[in-house]
Every structure is written in C-alpha cells, then in structure tokens.
Design a protein around this nucleic acid. Sequence first.
DNA 1: TTTCTGTATAACGAAATCGTTATATAACGT
DNA 2: ACGTTATATAACGATTTCGTTATACAGAAA
Lengths: 110, 110
Amino acid sequence: MDMHTVEELSKVLKVLGDPTRLAMLKQMETDEQCACSFVDCFDISQPAISRHLKMLRQAGLLLERRDKQWIHYRLNEASPFYPLVMELLGQVELHDPTGTSASTCNVKSS
Amino acid sequence: MDMHTVEELSKVLKVLGDPTRLAMLKQMETDEQCACSFVDCFDISQPAISRHLKMLRQAGLLLERRDKQWIHYRLNEASPFYPLVMELLGQVELHDPTGTSASTCNVKSS
DNA sequence: TTTCTGTATAACGAAATCGTTATATAACGT
DNA sequence: ACGTTATATAACGATTTCGTTATACAGAAA
C-alpha cells in the first residue's frame, strides 16, 4: 500500500470533496468520458465543468486524450491515489449522483 | 461494504480534506485524545482547534467523553464512514503531520 | 467566592471556492 | 474565409472556509 503525507492526502481529499467532481469521477470509473458529456449531465455551465476538470487534472487524477475537437478524460491509473479513488468510487451509489443531473446523464439509468 | 451517496461521501471527504483535521484524526487512530493535546500539537489557536473538532463531530466521525474539565475525543466506530476513515489513516505517514506541529506533539516521535 | 484551567462561541477579516457571463482558442465543415 | 462546435480562460460576485481576538461557560481548587 502506498503511503502519503497528510498534506498530499488532504489536498486530494479536498478535490474529491465536491459532489460534482465526485460524480464526474464516478462517470469515468469504467470508461473515458468526453468533456461535453459532463456538460450535458450536470446542471452547471460549461466553464464550471471545465474548471472542475482542471482541478481533477491538476491533482493528477485524470489523463486526457484529444480526438478532433473532443477531449476525452479518463482516470490516471498511474496516480499514487488511483487505488484510493477507485475504492471510493466503489462505495458510491449509482443513480442521480448529485440530484443535479439532467435527464440525458448516462449514469442515471434506472 | 457500505455504499454512500455522492452527496454524503463528498461531504465527509470535504471534512477530511483539511490537513489539520486529517492530522487530528491520525492522532486519534489508536487512542482517544484530549482536546487540549491538539492545542499543544498544532500551531493554531484553541478556538480554531475547537471548530475543527466541531466539524469532525458534526460529520459523525467523533465521539466525546467528558472527564472533569477535560473532553476526550475518539473515532466513532459506529459511523458508516469509520472503515473509510481508518483506511485513509492507514495510508497517512506519521511524523510531523502538517509541518505545523509543535515539539510537544506526540505523533512526531522520530 | 474567587481564581485557574479547559473548552466553546461570537464577531470579524482574508482568502479560497464555486457559480456566473463574456470572450478566446482549437478544430471541423461548408 | 466563414460559421459552428468543443473547450479553456478571464473577470466578477456570493458564499464558505479558516484563521484571529475577545468573551462566555464549565468544572476544579484555593
């Protein structure tokens, strides 16, 4: 098991401690996601989504792949926090992650 | 394994996402701690310590035991987040949790 | 009762957070 | 070139966070 300093770990937990970001990560649990899918899925503006993605990226939790004009994000399996993130996501219920999801959100299937 | 909603989990992660609170929890990992020991251990004021403890209590993570004028806090093993907290604490390095600990902090032993 | 120690709360300020709208940039299609 | 779509950044405001100092409360001891 990898060990972390209090500073490192608390920084990551702070990033995870937002319902929108946590729900975004949940959507990336199994597949990569296009940034635009988050815009459809959450009832916040596209710039707000973009900033959340930036925070997740800066925490080292995400990798991106550009395909034409779309940018696909996925979990960074090489992050020292990847095991932790996966375990947390495993404890997150599906359906309507934030109560803010639009009807097109692919996480809400029930 | 217990499951949590995104809302619940993100709320707890937010509480955990502060270096002082995470270090406080680390000190309670094995033993209960008197509130005053945190005051000695961190370079912030007593009221600041008190507010951090209140947040941890309100998140359901702590239980308290009054003994004369001292209040001893310990992890709430009945919290649905207790297993998660313990696992996180297991990934936290000891020594000088925040870089802010005073020389009397009992966590820094090396 | 007064005093001391331990803890909590009130009131305040600086900085961070998280949303918005407006605008810029990148890549595609016509 | 131009318009459209996808994404990022800038600028701003409301709210939250986290520290402080001052004060209140609780219990012990003189």
